[in-house]
Amino acid sequence: MDKAVVDLGSLYGKVLLFGGVYSNLQALEKLKSIAEKQGIPPENCICTGDIVGYCGQPEEVVQLFKIWGARSILGNVEIQLRDGAEDCGCDFRKGSRCDGFSQMWFPYAQSKLSKSSLEFISELPDHLTFRFAEKEIFVVHGDYFNVSEFVYKSTPWEKKQANFDALQTDVIIAGHCGLPFNQEHDDKLWINPGVIGMPANDGQPHVWYALLEEQNGSFGFTHHTMQYNHKLANAHMQNEFLPQEYARTLITGIWDNTEILPPYESGLQGFGIQL
Rank of each mutant, 00 (worst) to 15 (best):
A4H: 13
V6M: 04
G13V: 12
G13C: 12
L17T: 06
F18S: 10
F18Q: 13
G20M: 04
L31H: 05
I34Y: 10
Q38I: 02
P41V: 12
T48L: 04
G49S: 10
P58A: 10
F65G: 05
A70P: 08
I73N: 03
I79V: 15
E86F: 00
D87R: 00
G89P: 01
C90W: 00
D91E: 11
R93D: 14
G95R: 07
R97I: 08
A109R: 00
Q110W: 00
S111W: 06
S116I: 08
S117A: 14
E123F: 01
D126E: 14
D126T: 05
H127C: 13
H127Y: 10
L128Q: 08
E134R: 14
E136L: 12
I137S: 10
V140G: 03
V151E: 01
T155A: 10
P156I: 07
E158G: 14
K159W: 10
K159V: 15
K160P: 00
D165V: 03
A166H: 05
Q168D: 11
D170Q: 02
V171H: 02
A174P: 01
H176W: 02
G178R: 03
G178E: 03
G178M: 01
N182M: 12
Q183L: 15
E184Y: 03
D187A: 13
N192E: 11
P193D: 09
H206A: 07
L212T: 06
E214A: 12
E214P: 08
Q215E: 15
F219A: 09
T225E: 09
Y228R: 06
N229R: 13
H230S: 12
A235E: 14
N239K: 14
E245F: 01
Y246P: 02
R248T: 15
L250P: 09
T252I: 08
W255C: 02
I260W: 04
S266F: 00
G267H: 13
G270V: 01
